[in-house]
Computed example of a mutant assay.
Amino acid sequence: MTVHGCRSCGAALTVPVSRVALPVHTYQRYGNGPGSLDPLLEPGTFAMDPLPSGSPGRRWAELEAGEAEALGWYAPRFAISDGPAGQVLLAPGDVRGVFIDPALVGDSACCGLDGSEPNMVCVTCGTPVATRIDDCGLWQAVWLEPLTTHVIEEGPGPHPVLDWRDLIDQRPGIPPSEPDGGWHPMWTAAVASALAHLLAASGGDPILIPDHRVAAIFRPTLDRLVDPVNARSECTLVLAGPGLPAADGHLALVPEHPQTGEHWPVARPVKPVPLAWDVWRHLAFHRDVKPVGLSVPIPPEALPPLFPSHRLDPDGRIFLKVLARLPEVRRPWLRAIYDRGRRFDYCFYVF
Rank of each mutant, 00 (worst) to 15 (best):
279 V>P: 00
151 V>N: 10
79 A>E: 14
90 L>E: 10
103 A>C: 12
86 G>L: 01
51 L>P: 03
266 V>H: 06
351 F>I: 11
52 P>H: 07
112 G>F: 09
303 L>Y: 12
114 D>W: 00
252 A>W: 03
204 G>W: 06
41 L>D: 08
140 Q>M: 13
333 W>V: 02
95 V>Y: 06
252 A>K: 05
23 P>C: 06
19 R>C: 12
221 T>V: 04
53 S>L: 08
331 R>M: 03
117 E>F: 14
124 T>D: 12
143 W>Y: 15
15 V>Y: 10
32 N>I: 09
255 P>F: 02
121 V>L: 06
125 C>Q: 09
344 F>N: 15
122 C>E: 05
107 D>L: 11
183 W>D: 06
104 L>S: 05
237 L>R: 01
218 F>L: 08
262 E>P: 00
74 Y>S: 09
199 L>R: 03
94 D>S: 06
207 I>A: 03
210 P>M: 00
165 R>K: 14
331 R>L: 08
239 L>R: 04
58 R>Y: 09
126 G>T: 01
52 P>R: 12
142 V>F: 11
326 L>K: 04
31 G>C: 04
246 A>I: 08
142 V>S: 10
81 S>N: 05
125 C>W: 03
152 I>M: 08
76 P>N: 14
105 V>K: 01
245 P>S: 04
236 T>Q: 14
244 L>S: 05
181 G>E: 11
343 R>L: 13
332 P>M: 01
321 K>L: 13
68 A>P: 04
308 P>K: 08
69 E>D: 13
39 P>M: 02
278 D>F: 10
48 M>C: 12
56 P>L: 03
67 E>L: 07
221 T>Q: 05
248 D>V: 07
129 V>H: 02
42 E>M: 13
39 P>K: 05
249 G>M: 01
331 R>N: 08
315 D>E: 14
24 V>G: 12
126 G>C: 02
24 V>Y: 01
122 C>T: 05
272 P>W: 00
178 E>M: 15
260 T>M: 04
16 P>L: 03
230 N>L: 15
302 A>L: 14
7 R>E: 08
138 L>H: 15
46 F>N: 03
204 G>E: 06
329 V>E: 07
342 R>N: 10
83 G>T: 07
191 V>T: 13
36 S>E: 08
29 R>K: 12
134 D>V: 08
260 T>C: 01
139 W>S: 11
206 P>I: 05
46 F>M: 03
159 H>F: 12
283 L>Y: 00
84 P>Q: 09
72 G>Y: 10
96 R>V: 15
